[in-house]
């Protein structure tokens, strides 16, 4: 019995390795400083060379997702790193990125009108090893497209983020993770009137080889700060 569990855990580790989740080298833990968003993944390593899917049901959720992605980008982009942001009719306002620790002039914006072009550009960008991350806003993404994206990043080690509308039923995905971000009311800052730090309800709806979860996060002074203890759902395997 005991030997069986060790064999299974060993096989799991091997599978993870083949899928690109490298365990951290002992004594050299390469954390990004994403806090709970990082520790949920296998081995506690944020999957950099994979695609993350963010589901946005409304403009407000899209803005909140944009905030979360920008926060993650600031951790991923070392000084000088470049990100490509593929969007629809220029909605993203570049100066806002500086509040999330991303230098807006290091981001190349590509604005397109139809999904066909966006998919093509996204795939090309994901194949480009000169980039740190690619963000793209899509109307809809099916399994086939997510699979293509995932295959593209496996060679280039680029991190991809897809902000998609939540139209209809959410099907299966080949992405490493599926997130949903909702804005939450901010708290007062020590009795001062006005708005506090931006606060979100971050749900990890699906994750490959990991645990889904749900957090309340605040963006404070350039870091994600958890507000309430994480609620860990039952372990599930997906993908």
């Amino acid at each position: 019995m005991n030997s069986n569990t060790t064999i299974i855990s060993k096989l799991r580790q091997d599978l993870l390795k083949w899928e690109g989740y490298k365990p951290p080298v002992s004594g050299q833990r390469d954390t990004l400083g994403l806090g709970p968003l990082e520790s949920i993944f296998p081995n506690g390593v944020f999957p950099k060379s994979s695609v993350h899917e963010l589901v946005c049901a409304s403009s407000e959720q899209a803005a909140a997702s944009g905030g979360l992605v920008s926060g993650m980008l600031s951790a991923l982009m070392q000084p000088g790193g470049v990100c490509v942001w593929i969007g629809r009719d220029r909605r993203l306002f570049a100066p806002a990125l500086s509040a999330f620790g991303v230098e807006p002039h290091q981001v190349v914006f590509i604005s397109l009108m139809n999904d066909k072009d966006i998919l093509w550009v996204m795939e090309e960008a994901l194949k480009c090893p000169g980039l740190t991350a690619v963000v793209c806003e899509l109307r809809d993404m099916d399994f086939k497209q997510s699979r293509r994206f995932q295959l593209a990043v496996e060679h280039s080690r680029v991190t991809g983020f897809v902000l998609r509308n939540a139209t209809g039923k959410l099907g299966s995905t080949a992405c490493a993770a599926r997130w949903q971000v909702k804005a939450l009311p901010s708290t007062d800052l020590g009795g001062l009137p006005g708005l506090g730090f931006p606060r979100w309800q971050v749900d990890l709806l699906k994750v490959r080889n990991g645990q889904t979860g749900s957090w309340v996060l605040e963006w404070q002074e350039g870091h994600f700060v958890p507000v309430i203890e994480t609620v860990i759902h039952a372990e599930r395997q997906a993908g």
């Binding site: 803005a63 009719d89 306002f93 100066p95 806002a96 230098e103």
Partner: peptide, 13 residues
């Protein structure tokens, strides 16, 4: 330098 004022992440044209 980029301005420090808080600006919305999505701006309507």
């Amino acid at each position: 330098a980029w301005p420090k004022a808080l600006r919305p992440i999505r701006l309507l044209s």
